[in-house]
């Protein structure tokens, strides 16, 4: 039973990872791409690790998977934040359809 559930979670995770990569290709500029990359890939990977916990139980592998989930949730938003800030500081413009850019206004 647990193994079936584990496989289901792993399949869901792979699906979300796929959507994240598709977003990387389809969305127009670096900020939108980061949105897809952080959200989908974080939850997708967490889902895969959660599936692993269900599949393997709380053995050595399961406990490491728990740690990985915690560190992923803590670090991947920070990485996205740093990338977005760096991109904006080095002058990457928002894509054409953008509505507003308050950050640019405040910097002047």
């Amino acid at each position: 039973m647990n193994e079936t559930l584990g496989v289901i979670f792993i399949v869901i995770g792979v699906g979300f990872d796929f959507f994240g990569c598709l977003g990387l290709l389809r969305l127009p500029d670096v900020y939108n791409r980061l949105q897809a990359a952080t959200k989908c890939v974080t939850l997708g990977t967490c889902s895969i690790l959660f599936g692993l916990i269900l599949y393997k139980g709380f053995g050595p592998a399961g406990i490491k998977a728990v740690l990985c989930i915690i560190f992923l949730l803590l670090t991947s938003p920070v990485a996205a934040h740093a990338l977005a800030r760096g991109a904006h500081k080095s002058g990457v413009k928002l894509c054409k359809g953008s509505v507003c850019d308050k950050y640019e206004e405040d910097k002047k």
Partner: peptide, 12 residues
Amino acid sequence: VIHPDLPIKPGI
């Protein structure tokens, strides 16, 4: 992402 028209309205 999978919507064909890409319904986004981005901004900061």
